[in-house]
């Protein structure tokens, strides 16, 4: 009789341990995004313009270089950072300067940002400057979008802005 009572107590304690465990492996649900919001992702991977001009080397300068490294011109490597701005219905939602990668700032500029925006119709303006020598924004996309709740819209760049 004592054994049966003990086994029943064990069963009860196993239940006390496992039932909350099973429950908490999937419940309660977590609301990650309000139902009236949509998601706008900006993901840009783009190399900015080289800063500066190539300069021609003189004959003496060329001769001073090792034979296998002689070039007619000396070209800078550093690239321009990207100046990015996103406006939704005329209101600035995101603005950033994305530096080039690499120790010598000669790599690609990469960025990613996820923004939660109200679903519905919006006027979207995305603009970017990728050349410090240029004034203002030299790339721009302006479009009217109709975002459904929970819709994911991606703005990327490949020889111009694209919305997917």
């Amino acid at each position: 009789m004592a054994d049966i009572r003990r086994y029943l107590a064990q069963a009860a304690l196993y239940a006390v341990f496992l039932l909350p465990l099973v429950y908490f492996t999937h419940l309660p649900t977590y609301r990650h995004l309000e139902p009236d919001l949509a998601v706008l992702k900006i993901a840009i991977r783009h190399a900015g313009a080289i800063i500066g001009e190539c300069t021609a080397l003189t004959a003496e300068e060329t001769a001073a270089l090792p034979p296998n490294m002689r070039h007619a011109q000396d070209c800078p490597r550093e690239r321009s950072p990207l100046e990015l701005e996103l406006l939704l219905d005329g209101k600035s939602l995101y603005q950033a300067t994305v530096p080039p990668s690499g120790l010598h700032n000669d790599g690609i500029s990469s960025m990613y940002r996820r923004l939660e925006v109200p679903a519905g119709k919006h006027q979207l303006l995305l603009r970017m400057n990728d050349d410090v020598a240029a004034q203002g924004y030299n790339w721009q996309l302006e479009e009217s979008v109709d975002l459904q709740p929970a819709q994911v819209m991606v703005a990327s760049f490949k020889e111009g802005f694209r919305l997917e």
Binding site: L19, V22, F24, T25, H26, H32, P35
Partner: peptide, 26 residues
Amino acid sequence: VSLWRPALSQAPANLDIAVTEVGLDW
């Protein structure tokens, strides 16, 4: 427990639609 409440998947992932409410392993 496994027979009574088997572990199941939620709806399949779809990266074109954001996750709004999710069952979470707390």
